[in-house]
Design a protein around this nucleic acid. Structure first.
Length: 574
DNA sequence: GCTATGGATAGCCTAGCATCCCAATGCTA
């Protein structure tokens, strides 16, 4: 799909136009880029079927942009963009990632110092060449150096799984202070986004100063960026920043809404407010100076004619229209999951015995747990061969009998995470697969195939009558490895046709399928399962990250088979 | 440059903050 490439060019064009001081065009390009990024259909296909006219039907795309898309599809280039790039050959993605630098400053830096890359920028700042420039100063130069460090260390984003536990711990400690009346996590953490820039905490307090004192002196804090009565900002040990804002109770709802975002969602809300003759800000919904709603999020949404929208949906991907029509999905809840089918035991690479895993799963309130040990191809994880699998299954039978004898209504399910070989075959025999309650199959080798080969490979595996679930379907590792090239649309079609379930792997580095692909699968009627891929019983708690992504992908209880009673779930499997 | 309204033109999300320079700009959320 060329959608992302064109979106990237449009985003860069927006930045170039911003450099030139052009009004409104940057916004137009940004908007079109955002639409393209989230477009389900391939622009190339749209153009092929309906030509320029069809392109212009894409919201935010008019005559001029349609022509540019056509040009890109035909020649692989957009002349208008190439001219900018030649005149201002700046690595925009690198330079703009530095906090404090925007298009205007990037242009000045290039024209005066020839700065094109992050390395150029660092060298110039270290040589103190930046401070003397007009509009800059010693302070800006120092900030640039610090921001570069941050970009280099983390690319500026952290995994939800790295951040959420600490954010919740800090929230809980603050909530125990007598001065704190209420406290919430806002921002992208509240939206359960897969990666996070920083943490926003919002509190109500009549005595903010002791709260702020407590906050900046938390043991996790390594640096205080600023401390005031309404806002304090710190850097934590793991490297991300945390902001605490104290809001007056009457406008808390508006503030929580505002600071939860996303930016796109908020922009869309403000437009609705304007259409109704209102003005929406972090202080409330106003008509002139009269306050319409502010105390709760529900009140703000209601005054705009909308249902309250769950944070995970707030991305301006149609949730506002759905809320206006009273047709928001009834999202899968964090308490709906009945079991986890992807847990590794110490029969292969896992840390705990099957008995320990079962005990831990029971403690989480599950009805069942599925042991999905690796199969023999994965030597590094001590994958099991057919004979060892059989022995392991005997142990599971024995443990199930024990559970039954002691009156527990809990089942351990026999399974494996088998390997999909390059030709689409499975690395253990069909006889052995047939003995399992369920079979997860995944790609764990030879990631670099052409998209056609990889798609064919996985679809072949789906046609195996024993393969129930495809593990981590795109193979991505966040911040480390991009997904392998695979045609997910075809994969989803094949899953639908073969009755194969696709996994939402809740492991923080994976979160695979991601939110957008979850939505695609759901719309195609494909069933999904949320699994942790736990190798340690503590990792069973990763489930909530998977549920978060499922909610972001609009998934409801009927879409997620491990939210069903165990008998129904087993019936769904092949 | 796009959209909506009406057939050529108006309007595009908002507020606060840091920095640099002492009123304005750029950036961020």
């Amino acid at each position: 799909m060329k959608n992302q490439e064109i979106a990237r060019i449009f985003n860069e064009l927006a930045e170039y136009l911003e450099m030139e001081g052009v009004a409104f065009k940057p916004y137009a390009y940004q908007k079109a880029a955002l639409t393209l990024e989230n477009l389900k259909d391939d622009v190339a296909a749209i153009y092929q079927q309906g030509g320029l006219k069809a392109l212009k039907k894409i919201p935010g795309v008019g005559e001029s942009m349609a022509l540019k898309i056509e040009e890109y599809l035909k020649t692989g280039k957009i002349q208008y963009y190439e001219e900018f790039k030649q005149r201002l050959p700046i690595e925009l993605n690198e330079i703009m990632a530095v906090e404090g630098l925007g298009p205007k400053k990037a242009k000045i830096l290039y024209e005066h110092l020839g700065i094109r890359t992050l390395a150029d920028l660092e060298a110039a700042a270290q040589a103190h060449q930046i401070a003397p420039l007009f509009g800059f100063g010693a302070k800006t130069e120092a900030n640039i150096l610090e921001a570069i460090e941050f970009v280099k260390r983390s690319k500026g984003r952290f995994l939800l799984g790295e951040i959420l536990p600490l954010a919740e711990a800090v929230r809980d400690r603050l909530s125990r202070l007598p001065e704190v009346e209420q406290i919430n996590i806002a921002g992208s953490v509240r939206r359960m986004k897969e990666t996070i820039g920083d943490v926003d905490l919002l509190a109500i307090s009549r005595a903010p100063d002791p709260v702020m004192d407590f906050f900046v002196s938390l043991p996790e804090v390594v640096r205080v960026w600023g401390q005031g009565h309404t806002k304090s900002s710190v850097r934590t040990k793991p490297g991300f920043d945390m902001d605490l804002r104290v809001i007056p109770a009457p406008s808390y709802g508006a503030a929580l809404q505002y600071f939860t975002g996303s930016k796109e969602h908020n922009i869309a809300l403000r437009k609705i407010a304007i259409d109704l003759g209102y003005k929406l800000s972090e202080y409330g919904l106003f008509k002139g100076s009269e306050i319409i709603a502010a105390v709760s999020e529900e009140a703000v949404y209601q005054a705009l004619g909308l249902q309250w929208i769950p944070p995970e949906l707030r991305e301006d991907r149609g949730e506002i229209e759905a809320a206006a029509a009273g047709k928001l999905p009834k999202l899968i809840d964090y308490t709906d999951i009945r079991g986890d089918l992807h847990v590794h035991s110490n029969w292969n690479g896992g840390a705990h015995s099957i008995a320990d895993i079962a005990a831990a799963a029971r403690q989480l309130g599950y009805d069942y747990v599925g042991i999905a040990d690796h199969t023999k191809f994965l030597r590094i994880e001590r994958g099991l061969d057919e004979a060892t699998l059989e022995k392991r299954n005997q142990e599971i039978d024995r443990l199930n009998q024990q559970l039954k004898d002691s009156g527990h209504d809990f089942t351990i399910l026999k399974g494996c995470e088998a390997n999909i070989m390059a030709d689409g075959s499975i690395d253990i025999t069909d006889e052995s697969l047939a003995q399992q309650d369920f079979v997860i199959a995944g790609v764990h080798s030879q990631f670099k195939m052409t998209p056609e080969q990889m798609t064919e490979r996985v679809i072949t595996a789906m046609h195996n009558p024993h393969v129930d679930i495809i593990a981590h379907p795109t193979g991505r590792i966040l911040k480390k490895r991009t997904e392998y090239e695979i045609n997910l649309d075809q994969l989803i079609q094949a899953a639908q046709a073969t009755g194969t379930v696709l996994e939402i792997n809740a492991y923080p580095e994976r979160l695979d399928l991601d939110d957008l692909n979850i939505l695609k699968a759901k719309q195609a009627g494909v069933k999904l399962i949320i699994n942790t891929d736990a190798h340690h019983i503590d990792q069973l708690r990763y489930m909530k990250y998977g549920i978060g992504q499922a909610r972001r992908g609009w998934a409801e209880k009927p879409d997620i088979i491990n939210a069903w009673p165990v008998a129904e779930m087993l019936k769904m499997l092949k």
